[in-house]
């Protein structure tokens, strides 16, 4: 049964079947990279594949899940993911809003500024990571030099957990704030100017206008951003890999990077697959909240 269409008859008769068939090539590709791999991954997670071993894999039930859930690394890397996510959101969302508000003033040169400000999110993350690694260098880095010139002592940025986490958040923020800014800017543009005029006529102050009008109206967008960013922090890989490789030790390893290490460094393939399934389970509620929140945005 084909769903009813609201288009004129002309289109209904001849066009219905061909149009749905146009998605077949996409189905094939998505089956190849999402559907089949996902279920195969679930299957692998119940075997005991180790890439270094030549023994034929056998079925081990939930063993991998038990091992993985009992391992302290799973929990410590989850904790690090949550810390990065939390501080990252607290940094990126306010700065993103601030920049969007300033761009929304439509001052002269706004277009140029906007082009400049979105540049970071386009650049190759690996190259960005490399550049920042040089800039964060303890002795030769330009960041410590700049801090030194205002009297702050040298920081061994990538050498300890706290400062390395900050360095990672700084680099991610540098690349991600433009995304927050763009989405907030779109939300601001959608607010009717008459609302602001009415508020001004009523004698509302700038901060009142922001709190009572702007903020409530961009809240759905902020929720969408929050959900997407939570998923992105779980995905975080390129810059993290270049900056610290999750080190020192596992001090900056996130759950996603830990899955990579388990599979491709420690070669415990089935355990990594089990971690993958766990990540999917963590992602699911965020995913649904995101879809729900995005309905409020248009």
């Amino acid at each position: 049964m084909i769903a009813k269409v609201s288009r004129p008859n002309l289109l209904r008769r001849k066009n219905l079947r061909p149009v749905a068939q146009l998605t077949i090539p996409t189905w094939i590709f998505l089956a190849l990279v999402v559907l089949i791999p996902f279920f195969y991954g679930v299957y692998i997670s119940f075997l005991n594949i180790n890439l270094a071993s030549f023994l034929p894999p056998s079925f081990v039930g939930f063993d991998n899940y038990q091992t993985v859930l009992a391992a302290s690394e799973t929990w410590s890397t989850l904790r690090i993911t949550l810390i990065i996510t939390f501080i990252g959101l607290l940094t990126q969302i306010p700065i993103g809003i601030l920049l969007a508000l300033v761009l929304h003033e439509n001052l002269r040169g706004t277009k140029t500024f906007r082009s400049i400000l979105i540049t970071p999110m386009l650049l190759t993350p690996v190259a960005v990571g490399l550049t920042y690694r040089f800039m964060f260098d303890t002795d030769l880095g330009v960041i410590n030099w700049a801090l030194g010139s205002i009297g702050i002592e040298k920081v061994n940025w990538l050498g300890s957990q706290t400062s390395a986490l900050f360095a990672i958040i700084i680099v991610d923020s540098w690349q991600s704030i433009p995304f927050v800014m763009l989405l907030v800017l779109a939300a601001l543009t959608a607010i009717s100017p008459s609302l602001y005029e009415a508020a001004r006529v009523d004698g509302a102050s700038a901060s009142q206008i922001f709190r009572r009008i702007t903020l409530p109206l961009i809240t759905p967008t902020l929720l969408v951003i929050t959900m997407i960013k939570i998923m992105d922090f779980l995905k975080l890989f390129d810059t993290l890999f270049i900056l610290t490789r999750g080190g020192p030790g596992n001090a900056t390893t996130t759950l996603g990077l830990w899955t990579y290490k388990t599979g491709f460094v420690f070669l415990e393939f089935s355990r990594a697959a089990a971690l993958g399934v766990i990540i999917t389970v963590i992602t699911l509620p965020v995913y649904f909240l995101w879809r729900r929140a995005s309905r409020g945005v248009r």
């Binding site: 998505l30 990279v33 999402v34 559907l35 089949i36 791999p37 996902f38 195969y40 991954g41 692998i44 594949i49 998923m231 779980l234 995905k235 890989f237 996603g256 899955t259 990579y260 599979g263 393939f269 990594a272 697959a273 993958g276 399934v277 990540i279 999917t280 992602t283 965020v286 995913y287 995101w290 879809r291």
Partner: peptide, 19 residues
């Protein structure tokens, strides 16, 4: 499925794809 690609960490899918 399209959204799954945006939402899931690629490593989850790349492990099985590698195999």
């Amino acid at each position: 499925l399209m959204i799954a690609i945006r939402a899931l960490p690629a490593i989850v899918l790349l492990l099985p794809i590698y195999k």
